[in-house]
Design a protein around this nucleic acid. Structure first.
Lengths: 242, 242
DNA sequence: CGTGTTATTGACCAACATCAAACTTAGTGG
DNA sequence: CCACTAAGTTTGATGTTGGTCAATAACACG
């Protein structure tokens, strides 16, 4: 699986690509770079001149609020473009860091702009990419604002499971979520201690079994209903899980 | 002030428009419609064929989660395009309702598409519009996930104040926020009772004075610092408040 | 094997929810 | 103009969720 494949597969979760589109994508110059766990791929306030593609590992957008409290805004896997908006907004209003060791590639804005000027379908897909990103943010607002810690954590599990499956990054029933409990708390709201207690309850309730940061979904239907999860907001082209 | 003016002024908070751009915008057919308070302008699951412009009044995006709990996702004023994403995503993943009596206009997707095909600058502004929308969602995630009720409510006040000022919809120091305390809770998380107590504390702390739903900002600097508000995420072209 | 990180546990506390009632306000019809 | 009504606000009492602190246990890695 080449690095371009990951990107192509990701875009194909949005809409189909023909051979010409794929060829055009493969012309994009990729400057590759590895990041240690916890390193910033880019930081709030930066003015990027390239777009980032995750090739391997998992990254997250985040914001820091007063008192040093950190909120994780979104999670990103291989193929994702976690700062696509930098193509149009000059200044990063959030940071992007590596949840695991990450391999990433950077594509000059100019190359991406040239591509989308020439290829309407890819232009369209990238716009839809950004709009689906926004749809996921909306869902997170609703989760965090209106659900209990238990429901929120279950919801993140569902989202990660469905998104990774769409990218064929996971096997049926298995969910590798390489986040510490503290990070899971930063993504969903509760304190690390409370995350721990919620996870224990989820295990007792038979929704998941965990070994380290590998969580296996033992009862998808129960998990889904505990999370009140519905994948509509992901606007996936291909597989549905409902 | 014509209806087109509101839209034009809104887009000019993002980037400058020349006479040709403005003329092109004025060619867009507007089907106007009035909505009573609390009516849906569009509903989750809809497949709109038009984009909505708010002409007068205030509207909000929302989602309902299990148990009927409602989360307000974003607030919209005259000139806003609260379902711009429908141009690219066929199904509404949220509802849109009138917080006050609203006058709105609907523009056929086809007309908007024709416009952005012809006019690169407007295309660019609309993309940036959508991306700024997403930036606001990110900020809301951080607010709701990582701040106290007091800070969150103060933050919404700051955001509304700055956004409305950018649209010249408000006078200096005055903030008209026509939302009930229950709605304010739906936007920020806390229960109506708790919103009430927080507002009382904000008044006692000298941040605002209220008469009905008119809140006057009495001490912008204190309010701003209570909310830890920084308008970077709004990506405004014109005025800065910092 | 030691050392740092993460997970787990228990005790206690704060923020906020819920419930129920009273009060205020704005609108409506007689 | 006033009584009536409905919606929203305010208050008090009480309960729950989840935070904080601090200590211990389990791992993972060099």
């Amino acid at each position: 699986m080449t690095d371009y494949h990951r990107l192509i597969r990701r875009l194909e979760t949005i809409a189909g690509l023909n051979d010409e589109d794929k060829l055009a994508l493969r012309q994009l110059p990729l400057r590759k770079r590895a990041f240690d766990e916890n390193r910033d791929l880019s930081s709030q306030g930066d003015k990027p001149t390239e777009c980032c593609v995750i090739l391997e590992g998992m990254a997250a957008r985040y914001k820091i609020v007063s008192g040093g409290r950190r909120q994780i805004i979104s999670l990103h896997f291989a193929g994702d473009l976690p700062d696509l908006q930098s193509l149009y907004l000059d200044r990063m209003d959030h940071g992007l860091f590596a949840l695991t060791p990450v391999r990433a590639a950077f594509m000059p804005h100019e190359s991406v702009r040239a591509l989308i000027r020439r290829n309407d379908r890819i232009n369209d897909i990238l716009i839809r990419y950004a709009l689906i990103d926004a749809a996921i943010f909306r869902q997170w607002i609703a989760n965090i604002g209106r659900r209990t810690a238990y429901e929120r954590i279950a919801h993140v599990f569902c989202e990660v499971y469905v998104r990774m499956r769409a990218l064929t990054l996971t096997e049926e029933g298995s969910l590798h979520l390489p986040m510490t409990q503290a990070e899971l708390g930063d993504a969903t709201g509760p304190s690390p201690v409370h995350v721990n207690r919620v996870l224990q309850r989820m295990r007792k309730d038979g929704l998941i079994v965990s070994r380290g940061d590998i969580h296996a979904v033992t009862n998808w239907e129960r998990l889904r209903s505990a999370a009140d999860f519905n994948d509509d907001y992901l606007h996936l082209r291909q597989l549905r899980t409902a």
